[in-house]
Design a protein around this nucleic acid. Structure first.
Length: 423
DNA sequence: TCTGGGGTCCTAGGGCGA
DNA sequence: TCTGTCGCCCTAGGACCC
């Protein structure tokens, strides 16, 4: 059996943990630059404000309904996520951290357990240890655990946040209830195609023949169908190193001058290099892209990208920046108003397992230097030590007008509880 | 004025060597 | 030496997830 543990309205719940006065009050959390609404409390969902909506378009209704607005505080959410996941590992050794707010637990050898009660126990533990409300779906396969989780979320009164699909009847009933567009793995495009073919529920999907499913939705669709039928074909995935690492940002304004963009893109490259070193990998190629503002259709659009192959695998910030700038020079054109840029490092290999190039080899001094830079940055704070290509005076700040304190990761932000002794 | 960021996997189709 | 076929590899693009 698999359990899917999902934190309810995770980012909003993280904010509430430290602001209990906001329980039962409407909350939204915004994306970087306060651009989009990326998390909503149930009260906001009830107002029909959609996920991913542009914040400025809903400003009026947010004010009118006295919605509490927060800028995204990833330091806080990341730390709270770690705490939740740590507690979950006490319940089974087989765990897949699927995203910041979700984890699959494989419950092998739990035949004699009352899984419903086990679910309640997990829920109580997370609530006591972190204050984050969760929902749990338990079923014979991962995709069915997703379905069970949805039921637990949708009917909190009846399920108390835990739902187990254990019989064939329950499976069929659940799949007949679930709309096709809500199935895990069926996105917008697939849902449209399925509906055009008269398939409206998850159950309808499972009744289609294998050949048709595979032809239209590839091997992924076929796997999903079998999983929904109760045959566990989607296995728990074990943690491996990332296959690509990206740093991409929208700018606060649009920019067209080369030096500004070079400085930004170099910083993205350095960020990627640092993440590479954290997971002890090196990359063989770098993708650099620029984008003009896609929402301004009346301006000339230009979305170039380039992949630069490196002469040898590296995670040195100096090397990665050098090749990133080389790529940038090839795609940059003046007279365009750029709104977004990004750097993605790819073709990764383990740091210790690097194949050397006959004619070019990495500078051995870089390794020591990078180690020192990482040490200093860890001690002094994020990117305090910079490369010369970065502007030392300029600090790029995202628009984060509603940022909450880093309650759990910064000492100065820790909540102080004062005890008053009555005289 | 203001519209996020970071990932994975699969397939089609072309190039190319056996 | 030329040609056809097969299959592998690579890439771009499209789909999905949170």
């Amino acid at each position: 059996m698999f359990a899917l543990v999902d934190c309810n309205n995770f980012f909003a719940s993280c904010e509430r943990v430290f602001r209990p006065d906001l329980n039962h009050k409407p909350i939204v959390v915004l994306s970087n630059n306060d651009g989009c609404i990326i998390a909503r409390s149930n009260e906001v969902k009830a107002l029909k404000i959609p996920m991913g909506a542009a914040a400025f378009k809903y400003k009026h209704i947010l004010e009118q309904k006295q919605v509490h607005v927060f800028s995204s505080n990833y330091a806080l959410y990341g730390d709270m996520s770690k705490r939740v996941m740590n507690l979950l590992t006490d319940f089974t050794p087989n765990i897949e951290i699927y995203s910041i707010d979700e984890a699959f637990l494989k419950l092998d050898g739990f035949d004699n357990y009352n899984l419903q009660n086990y679910g309640f126990k997990i829920k109580r533990t997370i609530d006591k240890g972190t204050g984050i409300p969760i929902s749990i779906g338990i079923a014979p396969t991962k995709s069915l655990a997703k379905v069970a989780n949805r039921i637990a979320k949708k009917f909190p009164q009846k399920t108390k946040g835990v739902y187990v699909i254990k019989s064939e009847n329950q499976r069929v009933k659940a799949l007949k209830w679930l709309n096709i567009e809500d199935v895990w793995g069926i996105g917008k495009q697939y849902a449209k195609k399925l509906k055009n073919n008269g398939i409206y529920s998850a159950y309808d999907f499972t009744q289609q023949n294998d050949t048709w499913v595979k032809r239209n939705f590839s091997i992924v669709g076929l796997r999903l169908k079998k999983d929904l039928l109760g045959e566990a074909v989607i296995e728990l995935e074990h943690i491996t190193s990332k296959k690509s690492i990206a740093t991409t940002r929208s700018f606060d304004y649009t920019y067209s001058d080369y030096e500004t963009i070079k400085e930004r893109v170099s910083t993205f490259a350095i960020n990627c290099a640092q993440k590479l070193r954290e997971q002890q990998s090196a990359c063989n190629s770098i993708l650099i892209f620029l984008k003009t503002n896609k929402h301004k259709q009346n301006t000339t659009q230009y979305h170039p990208h380039i992949v630069v192959q490196l002469p040898y695998p590296t995670n040195s910030s100096i090397d990665i920046v050098k090749h990133t700038i080389k790529g940038l020079k090839q795609i940059y054109k003046p007279n365009f108003q750029y709104k977004k840029a990004g750097v993605v490092v790819m073709d990764m290999v383990p740091e210790i397992n690097q194949q050397l190039n006959l004619f070019q080899s990495p500078n051995p001094k870089h390794k020591k230097l990078m180690k020192t830079v990482d040490l200093l940055n860890n001690k002094l704070g994020y990117q305090k030590i910079k490369l010369a290509c970065q502007d030392l005076k300029r600090t790029w700040k995202m628009k984060q007008e509603k940022l909450s304190p880093k309650y759990s990761t910064r000492l100065s932000d820790v909540i102080i509880i004062k005890l008053y002794r009555p005289k």
